[in-house]
Amino acid sequence: MPDAQIFSGAFAEPVFAAQSVFRTVMDCMARPGTIGTIAAAARPPQPLGAAAGAIALTLCDHDTPVWLTPQLSKSKLPGWLAFHAGAAVTVEKQDARFAFVEKGAVVPGFGLFAQGTQEYPDRSATLVVEIESFEGGRPLVLTGPGIRDEAVVAPQGLPETFVALAGANRAMFPRGVDLILVAGDRILCLPRTTVINNREA
């Protein structure tokens, strides 16, 4: 039955689940390179994964227009977000406070989303991007606030041009978008302050 996908799959205990998911996201945002685990389960309609769905339930509501990839827009997800979070889907990337990209989908250029303004850099989008895994990819060296010395991660499934995209995003500081990468039930945050480089061989 199609509607079951829309009307079920939210948190069993919304208050405590949202708190636990938020704390994981907050800790990861404060310590880029640290991989956190989303403990509370949500069941969003396919193809969005459980952890990205949990982040949506935790942070999105009627104040936050959400942008979805074409594939997610065609799924039951817009209805699910509307029913459980009260969040509206927008087709305009500039209007979105959050954007969700499922595993394997094309990641749009960061510059297409709201960057905030020089006076209000907080009015920018947060991108939630599902990737294959946090291991086995090309090693990236992270430096910046929240990182003692440096952190090395090797996410698999990011676009080829990711380092250049992130570099351009960093150069806009204090404007820019913030990223939450998701693989399975694990997340990694890359706020706009993080400097990302390929590890030299």
Binding site: P14, V15, A18, Q19, F22, V25, M26, M29, A30, T58, L59, C60, D61, D63, T64, R97, P121, D122, S124, T126, P145, G146, F173, P174, D178, P191, R192, T193
Partner: peptide, 19 residues
């Protein structure tokens, strides 16, 4: 209430991203 918490939580995440 939960909507207030979400609003504050979003502000906290942006605050962390722009120290």
């Amino acid at each position: 209430d939960e909507q207030t918490k979400r609003m504050i939580r979003r502000a906290i995440l942006k605050a962390i991203a722009i120290p």
